[in-house]
């Protein structure tokens, strides 16, 4: 009798290899030709080595950002789906992205007058605000985390924050409005490693929680009562899942904007490949999500070159029809 996990381990390893391949190969692809020999030629000072700068400043951080954001969104999607016991949930269902977007909108619109600079920290702060509000709403009447109440609170906050976003956009001048809209479409051109380093601690903390959550999430899919009867502390699992997945989502959105569909199509594809066990679904989703977004970003920067196509549009063009197919297949 083989362990059901063992059968799918080669698939997970394969997805890992694909991710590494995507990260390594994507910096070699682009609208500009670069000479690899020159890129790694140490005798040319970096300041004047254009090939090296294109490789190390323009492309490699993008590849890493794509991997970080894609892997994180896919994993957060898995956790939210497990928490809400709904395969159609996304990392944005509970309002994290609406909060992040509001933060970014404020930073972009009032950026010149605010003491801090940049959409990234502002979006992270907005995400955390949204998470806190949703949690307080969801636990106001009940001691536990009812998924129905959680979902309602998330949907309500989503529309409330969307209204606030419209209000901020109303106050914005034309140019800021334009840039704000573009932020919403996603952009992985980070131009430095700083945004990655900034998001990394949050992602790392969340991933540690995900490792712990993998098995309890399996049992949670039997229902909260059934999981509790098997000795699981359902409340602490739900709380950990909610906060860690929200934190991960907030960090990912602060790096790349609210890129859609990665958090839903990747987990779904992965379940088709490795089954439902979260101990496989989580790592496999991280690898496939990372590889998928890295490839999408290569398209984003090459398809309309020298113009940049928002990566969110590419994931949406691929993800939208896929999502519909999923919905139809369900019925």
């Amino acid at each position: 009798m083989t362990h059901p996990l063992k059968r799918s381990v080669p698939i997970v390893v394969g997805l890992f290899a694909l991710m590494v391949l995507a990260i390594v190969l994507s910096p070699l692809v682009g609208s500009t030709h670069i000479n690899l020999m020159r890129v790694f030629d140490r005798s040319i000072p970096f300041e004047s080595n254009v090939d090296a700068q294109i490789f190390f400043i323009a492309r490699l951080p993008r590849a890493l950002a794509g991997a970080l954001v894609g892997g994180t969104l896919a994993a957060a999607g898995v956790v939210f789906q497990g928490l809400l016991r709904n395969p159609l949930a996304t990392p944005y269902t509970l309002g994290v992205s609406a909060g992040a977007s509001l933060g970014a909108m404020i930073a972009i619109t009032f950026g010149a007058t605010l003491p801090f600079a940049g959409a990234a920290p502002a979006s992270l702060a907005g995400a955390m605000l949204a998470v806190t509000v949703v949690y307080l709403l969801a636990t106001a009447r009940h001691s536990g985390l009812s998924t129905t109440v959680l979902l309602l609170a998330g949907v309500t906050l989503n529309s409330f924050f969307s209204a606030l976003i419209l209000f901020v956009q109303y106050l914005a001048n034309f140019q800021d409005l334009f840039r704000a809209m573009r932020w919403l479409m996603g952009n992985l051109d980070v131009t430095s490693y700083a945004p990655l380093a900034g998001a990394m601690p949050f992602v790392a903390i969340s991933f540690v929680a995900f490792v712990w959550l993998a098995r309890p999430l399996n049992l949670l899919s039997l229902g909260a009562d059934a999981a509790g009867a098997r000795g699981i502390n359902v409340r602490s699992v739900q709380r950990t899942a909610f906060f860690s997945a929200s934190l991960a989502t907030g960090a990912a959105v602060s790096v790349g904007g609210p890129i859609g569909f990665v958090g839903i199509i990747v987990p779904h594809l992965v379940r088709l490949m490795v089954g439902a066990d979260h101990r496989l679904v989580l790592p496999a989703s991280i690898f496939l999500g990372a590889g998928f977004l890295v490839v999408c970003d290569v398209l984003a920067r090459t398809v309309l070159s020298p113009m940049e196509l928002p990566v969110g549009i590419i994931t949406a063009v691929i993800g939208g029809p896929f999502f519909l197919w999923m919905l139809l297949r369900k019925r």
């Binding site: 059901p4 399996n218 229902g223 009562d225 379940r271 089954g275 066990d277």
Partner: peptide, 26 residues
């Protein structure tokens, strides 16, 4: 002490063996 609920609906496609193995959690 184990509990069998009236009905069990799964959000995801677990196999029967996986469901039974979940009993081993404690």
């Amino acid at each position: 002490l184990a509990v069998v609920p009236q009905e069990t609906h799964l959000a995801f496609d677990y196999s029967v063996l996986e469901i039974v193995l979940m009993g081993r959690y404690p």
